[in-house]
Amino acid sequence: MQIMGGRACIRGMRIPVSVIVGQVAHGATQKEILADYPDLEAEDIHQALAYAAWLTQEEVHTA
């Protein structure tokens, strides 16, 4: 994934990971996402979700 203005993007495309993860969160199917973004592949969606899961593994420290 590359960065676009500080945002992680799908393999060099100008499609932020957050857009794909947001669509999944709002109930879009893989088929619908691929129809909306014809340059994407199913593996791109998988990698976006894996990246989002990885981000949530950070430890949260409270003061």
Score class of each variant (00 low, 15 high):
Met1Pro: 00
Ile3Pro: 00
Gly5Gln: 01
Gly5Ser: 00
Gly5Phe: 01
Gly6Ile: 05
Ala8Leu: 05
Ala8Trp: 03
Ala8Tyr: 02
Cys9Met: 11
Cys9Thr: 15
Cys9Ala: 13
Ile10Asp: 04
Ile10Cys: 06
Ile10Glu: 02
Ile10Gln: 00
Gly12Gln: 07
Met13Lys: 15
Met13His: 13
Met13Gly: 00
Arg14Thr: 06
Arg14Trp: 02
Arg14Asp: 01
Ile15Thr: 13
Ile15Ser: 01
Val17Met: 02
Val17Trp: 00
Ser18Lys: 05
Val21His: 05
Val21Asp: 03
Gly22Val: 07
Gly22Asp: 10
Gly22Tyr: 05
Gln23Tyr: 08
Gln23Pro: 00
Gln23Ser: 07
Gln23Ile: 03
His26Gly: 01
His26Asp: 12
His26Thr: 08
Ala28Asp: 09
Thr29Pro: 06
Thr29Phe: 11
Thr29Trp: 10
Gln30Asn: 10
Gln30Gly: 01
Gln30Thr: 01
Gln30Leu: 02
Lys31Phe: 14
Lys31Pro: 00
Glu32Gly: 05
Glu32Ser: 13
Ile33Phe: 11
Leu34Gly: 07
Ala35Ser: 13
Ala35Asp: 14
Ala35Lys: 14
Ala35Thr: 11
Asp36Leu: 12
Asp39His: 11
Leu40Tyr: 11
Leu40Ile: 09
Glu41Ile: 12
Glu41Phe: 12
Ala42Glu: 13
Ala42Ile: 09
Ala42Gln: 08
Glu43Asp: 11
Asp44Ser: 10
Asp44Ile: 07
Ile45Pro: 01
His46Phe: 07
His46Leu: 15
His46Gly: 06
Gln47Val: 10
Leu49Ala: 12
Ala50Trp: 10
Ala50Cys: 11
Ala52Pro: 00
Leu55Asn: 12
Leu55Trp: 13
Thr56Pro: 03
Glu58Tyr: 04
Glu58Thr: 03
Glu58His: 10
Glu59Tyr: 02
Glu59Val: 01
Val60Pro: 02
His61Lys: 09
Thr62Pro: 06
Thr62His: 12
Thr62Leu: 15
Ala63Pro: 09
